[in-house]
Structure formats: C-alpha cells, structure tokens
C-alpha cells in the first residue's frame, strides 16, 4: 500500500477563519459540512477529530468517500441525540438562517459543544437597507443572492438581532468577526456593535454558554 498526503487545497477565506479558531487535537462537529473541506483540512493540519452532518446525500457520500466521518441529517432534528459538551466545537457555517428553528438550533450548538462557531449573512448591512429603502423590494445582494420566493433563507436576521438572541439564551460572545461578501474580515470593524451591523456582510461568532 502506498499513500501520500495530498497537499491541502487552500480553504475558502471564511472557513480558514473558522479553522484558525480551532485548537489542535480537539473534537468538533461540522453541521452542514458540504463535501468536507473544513473537516479534511482540520484533520490533516491540526489532527482534529471531526464529525460532520450534511443534509445532501451526495455531499455525505463525497465526504465518506474521502475518509471523513459524516452522517446525513439536518441541524433542526439531528443535534438532540448528542450528549452535552461532547464536542469542543460545534460549527454551523452559513446555515442558521436556513433552519426552521434558529433559537432551538443555537441552544443545541452551545449544549453539545463547549464552544460554538456560527456564521450567517447580516440583514442589517447598509446595502440591504438601501435596497429595501430605495427599491421597496426584498433585497438581493452578493451575500443574499436569492429572490424572495426561492430563497432557502427563511429566518434572516441582523447582527443586532443575533446579539439579542445570544443574550436571551445566556450565550457569551467570545469573539465577533465581521466579513465582506467574499468572507474576508473587515479589519476596521471591532466587536458586534452598530458599525458591525451596518458594515458586516456576514458575521462570524465564537460562542459559549454561560455556566
């Protein structure tokens, strides 16, 4: 048997930011793991013991074919099985707004993960506001590229809304990074205040539940 470690392809910028938050040798669950780019990268670069949940069967099969541990499932229904605190990190990237119960899902993330990493498009971004204000129609932007009638994003929120929900659920925001539509961090924006809500096209949050 011969086998060579394939050189890891560069990660998407926002996934790289997530990867940078994760300590080596930890255990994590990637919910909505797609074809397993992040899982594969973290296993090869940081020996992270990763698991994945993916809604599309084609995505699951692609992940397992590349040697990753992934099951078919979705964030709304399949987190309940896991015991509390079983993962060091529970990751939900660009999916919260597509779940049927974001509040429940967010609570589950900080239950099963000692920390949760969540990213989502910000409906409070100035382009979104301008679009609605000037055109009077549901905003279609680079970060939210769907017509109102075919969008999977059924629970859009702003950064401020998300911060409020975290407060309600007794969730501590350890870090907040605002990103542009390409997933690059906005270096001028710190924290999750009014500027973040206006200029962040996406928000990326590191969270944990207050004990």
């Amino acid at each position: 048997m011969t086998h060579q470690h394939p050189a890891s392809a560069p990660l998407r910028v926002d996934l790289q930011l997530i990867a940078d938050m994760i300590e080596p040798g930890t255990r994590m669950l990637d919910i909505g793991c797609g074809e397993g780019e992040l899982l594969d990268h973290l296993w090869r670069e940081k020996q992270v013991d990763g698991r994945g949940i993916e809604i599309s069967q084609a995505g699951v099969n692609a992940c397992v074919t590349r040697g990753l541990s992934v099951i078919q499932g979705n964030a709304d229904t399949d987190l309940a099985d896991f015991p509390a605190g079983i993962f060091d990190y529970a990751i939900l990237s660009q999916t919260l707004q597509a779940t049927s119960s974001p509040r429940h899902v967010l609570g589950e993330l900080v239950r099963i993960g000692k920390r949760a990493i969540v990213s989502f498009p910000n409906f409070g971004h100035w382009r979104v506001r301008r679009h609605l204000l000037l055109r009077g129609r549901m905003p279609v932007t680079r970060a939210l590229d769907y017509s109102w009638h075919d969008t999977p994003n059924i629970h859009l929120c702003t950064i401020d809304d998300f911060v409020d929900l975290c407060r309600d659920l007794d969730i501590v925001i350890e870090r907040a990074i605002m990103l542009d539509s390409n997933g690059r961090p906005l270096s001028g924006i710190r924290g999750s205040g009014a500027l973040a809500n206006l200029f962040g096209e996406q928000g990326l949050f590191l969270l944990h539940r207050r004990n």
Binding site: N61, V64, I71, F82, I86
Partner: peptide, 18 residues
Amino acid sequence: VVHALNAVAANVSFCEIE
C-alpha cells in the same frame, strides 16, 4: 443505530444509497 451511536458520541458515518 446511527442515533444510538451519536448518543454515545461514537465515530460514525452513514450513507443511504439510491
């Protein structure tokens, strides 16, 4: 079985083949 394995945090993959 997958749910049971998740409940004990086992390392599990599951594929349904069409």
